[in-house]
């Protein structure tokens, strides 16, 4: 089966976790980049095209919520899935109010994760298509003038 890889950015301070989850996603044919803190996440977004971010809530320094706020401000079309521990579901709810697509409890079920990734990517794709249509309509109108 062929599929176009999603460009996924995985943000978590736990290096082993990032590595293993990246390997799994890559095994499924996804294109995965890693960032180990909030700042790295923002830096990567400047350089690369990313469809979906998987973002840990609990990180030293800039935490997940702070990072999310900045991501949504600078790159509003990137979808974000929050990863939380059981004690931080509150933060996940807050994250979704701030525009995150969904959240997952750690340790996350991989099937659930791939399902949510798929839906996040679809939402982004549809959104992009609507923007393109709107742009096309705009260009069409301009060319008629």
């Amino acid at each position: 089966m062929f599929k176009t890889p999603s460009h996924i950015l995985l943000v978590d301070d736990e290096k082993d976790f990032v590595e293993m989850l990246s390997l799994r996603l890559q095994e499924n044919g996804e294109d995965v980049l890693a960032a180990y803190n909030g700042q790295e996440c923002l830096d990567t977004l400047e350089k690369k095209t990313i469809d979906v971010i998987i973002l840990d809530v609990k990180m030293p320094g800039m935490d997940g919520i702070e990072t999310l706020k900045k991501v949504k401000k600078l790159h509003p079309l990137v979808e974000v899935i929050m990863l939380t521990g059981h004690g931080t579901i509150q933060a996940a709810v807050e994250g979704m109010k701030l525009g995150a697509f969904d959240f997952l409890l750690k340790p996350a079920d991989f099937k659930e994760l791939t399902e949510k990734l798929k839906r996040a990517r679809e939402r982004r794709k549809e959104h992009m298509e609507r923007i393109q249509k709107a742009e096309a309509a705009m260009l069409l109108r301009q060319s008629k003038i």
Binding site: E14, D16, L23, E27, G85, K106, P107, F110
Partner: peptide, 20 residues
């Protein structure tokens, strides 16, 4: 429990990766 959750996630994904 909090501290164990992270290594648990690593174990789970390592095993999951091998399974894939």
């Amino acid at each position: 429990a909090h501290e164990i959750n992270n290594p648990l996630a690593v174990i789970q994904d390592s095993a999951g990766w091998l399974q894939q």
